[in-house]
């Protein structure tokens, strides 16, 4: 797994609520395409016009925000389909942190699998971050510090956030979660042996 410790950079505001994973990566750019295609297709629906040219109105196409490593997002970001390619597509645009009031559950899990940090902050705090960014475009920076679990706004305000301890450790250390789980190998085997006796109907033959 990729590590994540601390990041300082431009935070681009795209506060639309209920951005679903179909919007982040549509099926037409997913099936039978390569990882490179996916990484080039983030937000394709908004980013490109019908003829493939860039839509200048989309915030992440505008020079100040393009390539921002932090995305300021709206409620329920990443809802909908479980497609993990949504995370790859955001990463392909250079995004490493998404700050939103809430996330779709499956998307939230998928972030951690790919070294991307989803940060939950109240909507008012995110709107203020966006204000501070817009007030000084090109210069303002946001810092996201996972070790201390704080976001530092361009004006230096510290906003605390929480990530569960095991997820934080995994990101900070870049742990391989299959490896971590297999340290419980004996407990898994013991659980299965006991369950086989208790619920034999669950245990099918090969």
């Amino acid at each position: 797994m990729n590590r994540f410790t601390k990041l300082e950079g431009v935070a681009a505001p795209f506060l639309r609520a209920n951005v679903d994973t179909d919007m982040i990566i549509p099926m037409t750019r997913l099936v039978g395409t390569s990882r490179a295609d996916i990484e080039a297709s983030g937000f394709a629906l908004f980013r490109f016009n019908g003829d493939g040219t860039e839509n200048p109105d989309f915030v992440l196409n505008q020079p100040v925000w393009k390539g921002a490593p932090i995305l300021l997002a709206g409620d329920n970001f990443g809802c909908g389909s479980s497609r993990e390619a949504a995370v790859w597509a955001l990463a392909g645009m250079g995004i490493r942190v998404v700050i939103a009031p809430s996330f779709g559950d499956i998307f939230y899990n998928n972030c951690f699998q790919n070294g991307m940090l989803p940060v939950e902050l109240p909507i008012a705090a995110i709107e203020e971050l966006a204000e501070e960014m817009r007030a000084s475009p090109g210069n303002a920076r946001v810092t996201v510090d996972l070790e201390r679990q704080i976001v530092v706004s361009p004006r230096g305000r510290e906003l605390p956030f929480k990530v569960e301890a095991n997820r934080r450790d995994a990101l900070l250390q870049g742990l391989d979660d299959i490896g971590v789980t297999l340290t419980h190998r004996d407990a898994i085997a013991a659980w299965q042996a006991k369950d086989r006796a208790a619920r034999p109907w669950v245990w099918l033959k090969a």
Binding site: E84, N109, N110, I188
Partner: peptide
């Protein structure tokens, strides 16, 4: 539902965190 990394974990361990 799970993502593709979780699916790999599930297949390899028959468990999920």
């Amino acid at each position: 539902g799970i993502g593709s990394s979780e699916l790999v974990h599930a297949l390899a361990t028959q468990t999920l965190a």
